[in-house]
């Protein structure tokens, strides 16, 4: 790294700020979630529960996990799709003609690595193969984990509802075939696909001065992948 370090907080401000807002909004979800849950309990003629009981309920668990899984699916798909697909003029895209995984020279891999390249970029073999895909592998792995967690927690929450309404609980495989599971999944997926697609194409014609997610303000609309 050639950039001069300016202290832990400023060097990591983006990650730390989003981490802090994540915790605050998760707290907001917990408080509004228990209020909503209790409104339903009262409507069903059941006893309200405490915040502590809500935070240790699968109802809270599935509401958190169904949103996490869609975010990691979004990033996983975007990371892979942008290897192979371009959007001419988008700050989010490679230039047309650069589709694919590119050459070792372009990617500074193996004998083309720099002195300060990561060890696994230089080593070759399976290490470089894994490291070359590590971001997508982690995002894809987190999608599968969080989606599985949303299924397990959703199953328990669904059965809890069923029992509250004096209906039969379902087995785990039965839940995987239930509309509840797929409705939770699809309603989160559709919003991610819309947001990603719109970001890719809106960034062709619109700018945000100073943001690396945008092209430079004066960049031509037709120019692709030029970040500010």
């Amino acid at each position: 790294m050639s950039e001069k370090s300016r202290g832990f907080l400023r060097d990591n401000a983006l990650s730390l700020a989003f981490g802090a807002v994540f915790l605050a909004t998760l707290g907001g979800q917990a408080l509004s979630g228990v209020a909503d849950f209790n409104a339903q309990q009262v409507a069903d003629g059941l006893d309200p529960i405490s915040l502590g009981e809500y935070l240790t309920s699968s109802s809270f668990g599935v509401d958190v996990m169904e949103n996490w899984q869609s975010e990691y699916l979004q990033f996983f798909l975007y990371i892979f799709a942008t290897v192979w697909l371009v959007q001419r003029g988008s700050s989010e895209s490679k230039k047309p003609g650069e589709e694919g995984t590119e050459s070792d020279k372009e990617q500074r891999v193996g004998r083309f690595a720099d002195d300060d390249s990561p060890e696994w970029a230089r080593r070759g073999g399976w290490r470089t193969a894994v490291f070359s895909r590590s971001l997508g592998l982690l995002m894809g792995g987190l999608f599968l984990l969080t989606w599985a967690a949303s299924a397990v927690a959703g199953w328990a929450a669904y059965n809890s509802d069923q029992l509250g309404q004096l209906e039969d609980p379902v087995g785990f495989l039965g839940y995987l075939a239930a509309p509840d599971f797929w409705n939770r999944s699809f309603q989160n997926w559709q919003s991610e696909m819309l947001a990603v697609g719109s970001m890719a194409v809106f960034s062709v014609y619109l700018r945000q001065r100073g943001s690396p997610e945008s092209k430079l303000v004066g960049t031509a609309h037709a120019e692709t992948g030029q970040t500010g």
Binding site: N12, G61, L142, A151
Partner: peptide
């Protein structure tokens, strides 16, 4: 690279703890 590695692992641990917690709640049938 002042501490970025620590933030990296903090994020990963928080995510995995969240996943494990949600799975545990589900398996316990809470």
């Amino acid at each position: 690279m002042n501490g970025a590695r620590a933030v990296f692992w903090l994020y990963l641990v928080v995510i995995l703890v969240g996943v494990a917690y949600a799975i545990a709640l589900g398996l316990m049938g809470r």
